[in-house]
Amino acid sequence: MDIPPLTNGYEIVYKKPQTLTDTPMHYCPGCGHGVAHRVLMEVVEEMGIQDRTIGVAPVGCSVFAYDYMNIDMQEAPHGRASAVASGIKRVLPDRYVFSYQGDGDLAAIGTGETIHVVNRGENILMVFINNGVYGMTGGQMAPTTLLGMKTTTTPYGREVKTAGHPLRITNLVAQLPGACYVTRQAVHTPTTVRKLKKAFRAALEYQQKQQGTCFVEVVSNCPSSWKMTPAEANKWLEENMFPFYPLGDLKLPAQSN
């Protein structure tokens, strides 16, 4: 986007980072992916590591993340982003490597990879976008779908009896010794966005210290699948998602002496 010339006496205090491309994002209006993409790329820009960062996109709505992030990227098979990221990091250990996955990708089809990548303590950042629904395929139940939540495959609301419990995989991951830093953040308000940025920054900095896997969950929305306006979706998020997926740090790195 062209930046208009500076108005007399004014300076730019916020603009899109150069680490995002000019391709308009395909996400639905109000979708949290766009903010998560931007904040992650802001950190890459501010740390000056664009030339040393390699990302892995998942299958799901963010499959095209590589169209928007102006860095080298690979697109992984469904559920395998963290395995692909492990492969990259093992052969290029001095690079910053991250995987970016949704709830279906990371916590259903890719659960095995998620657990073992963290258990091996791969020095990567795993970004986990949790909106409780399969967005790309049209709003089916995700492993993180809340009880009672209606999706196209739980049209009467998710029931424990048939569909089991929503999975707090971040809590599971935080138990593993290979995890360095595990946190749950959000993207729906200016305050949560600022906190998320700090979390991404910390996670990428820890990666260089080689202390293990950093895992950042972002509790996000899906206005289209939730059949709400973006503002309604963010309100619903606070009232329903946060009680089950409370924000905050689940594991902090061990203090090095």
Partner: peptide, 21 residues
């Protein structure tokens, strides 16, 4: 006031914020 809140939550990175020096 150029507080940047709008740009922080914009999912499409569509907002540039200016503030008086």
């Amino acid at each position: 006031t150029g507080c940047v809140n709008c740009a922080l939550v914009c999912p499409d990175a569509a907002i540039i914020v200016y503030r008086q020096k």
